[in-house]
Amino acid sequence: MSGSTAPQVAANAPETGASVRVSLLLFASVAEAAGERRREICVAEGTTARGLFEQLEADIPALAGRADHVSFARNQQFVPPDTVLADGDELAVIPPVSGGA
């Protein structure tokens, strides 16, 4: 959208005003910092997984600086951060994992 501070998003987003709806899922340290686990969010068409997280960082100061340390899963599959989101996608933000022992 015009006025966005995230160049990655602005560069990919056509100036049509079209938006996509994404279900954002947060876990562990990220959920705790954000104070929430799920958010339905509308973003400009062309927004990437990382771009969406950067918007969230701008909205939630406790998440600032986390973008380089998280991975993303779209519809339960790991995807690169520059993956463009589609309408109806579920995007999970995956902090560094520590299962096992």
Partner: peptide, 26 residues
């Protein structure tokens, strides 16, 4: 492999607080 790729997270609780363990975080 499980420890590096499966979306499971561990939180350690101490007497005076708790920390999410994030091994690959700088």
């Amino acid at each position: 492999t499980l420890k590096t790729t499966v979306p499971i997270w561990k939180k350690e609780w101490y007497r005076d607080g708790a920390v999410w363990i994030e091994p690959t975080a700088a």
